[in-house]
C-alpha cells in the first residue's frame, strides 16, 4: 500500500462531497415541496404555483440524477480498487511463477522480491540481517539464473509483461512458466 492511497482518498473525498451536496439538495427540495403543497391548498391555478411546481419538479429530477451519478462514482471507485487488487495479485503470481521456473532458493526469492521493490543492497542486507557481500552474491546468482545482465534488466523482465505490445525486436526474455 504505497501509491494508491492518494487516488483512494481523492475518490473518497469526491464521493463524500457529492453525498453532502445530495443531502443539501434533498433538504432544499423537501422544504420546497412542502411549500408548494401549501400553495396548492391555497390557490392551485396561480402562475406563482405553476412556476413553483416546475421548479420543484426540476429539483426532484436533480436528486434522482444526482443519486445516479453518485452511485456510478462509488461503483467505479470500487471497480478500480478491485482491478488494482487483481492486477497486484496477478503480477505477484507471475513473479512467483517465474522465480520457481528459475529455481531460486527461498533466500534468493526474498532478495529478488526486495530488489524488484527497488531496495538497494544495503537496505536488503539490513532488512534480512545479512552482510552486504552475501546479498550482492545472491543478487549475482539471481541475475545469472534469470539470464539478465543486472538489476535494470531484471526489473524490466516483469514490467515488460505489463506493457503488452512491446518493442519490435525484443527477444531478451526466456520462456515464461505457464
Amino acid at each position: 500500500m504505497s501509491e494508491s492511497p492518494d487516488i483512494r482518498t481523492a475518490g473518497r473525498r469526491q464521493t463524500a462531497a457529492l453525498s453532502i451536496f445530495l443531502l443539501i439538495q434533498t433538504l432544499g427540495t423537501v422544504f420546497f415541496v412542502g411549500d408548494v403543497i401549501g400553495d396548492l391548498r391555497e390557490d392551485p391555478g396561480s402562475a406563482h404555483f405553476i412556476f413553483e411546481a416546475v421548479v420543484t419538479a426540476a429539483l426532484v429530477l436533480g436528486i434522482i440524477f444526482g443519486a445516479f451519478a453518485l452511485r456510478r462514482t462509488i461503483e467505479l471507485l470500487r471497480a478500480q480498487d478491485q482491478a488494482l487488487a487483481v492486477a497486484r495479485g496477478a503480477l505477484s503470481d507471475v513473479i512467483e511463477g517465474q522465480f520457481t521456473a528459475w529455481a531460486l532458493t527461498p533466500a534468493e526469492r526474498d532478495v529478488g522480491l526486495l530488489a524488484l521493490k527497488g531496495l538497494d543492497v544495503a537496505e536488503i542486507a539490513e532488512l534480512r540481517g545479512a552482510a552486504q557481500g552475501t546479498v550482492r552474491a545472491q543478487l549475482t546468482r539471481i541475475y545469472s539464473k534469470a539470464g539478465v545482465s543486472g538489476r535494470a534488466q531484471f526489473a524490466a523482465f516483469f514490467v515488460e509483461d505489463l506493457l503488452g505490445a512491446g518493442v519490435p525486436s525484443a527477444e531478451a526474455s526466456t520462456v515464461k512458466a505457464g
Binding site: 443531502l23 434533498t26 436528486i63 443519486a67 461503483e75
Partner: peptide, 17 residues
C-alpha cells in the same frame, strides 16, 4: 430535516449501490 433524510435514504434504497 429528518423527513428529508428519510426521503434521501429511501431514494438511495432504490438508486444506491
Amino acid at each position: 430535516i429528518v423527513m428529508a433524510l428519510l426521503v434521501l435514504r429511501l431514494v438511495w434504497g432504490v438508486l444506491g449501490p
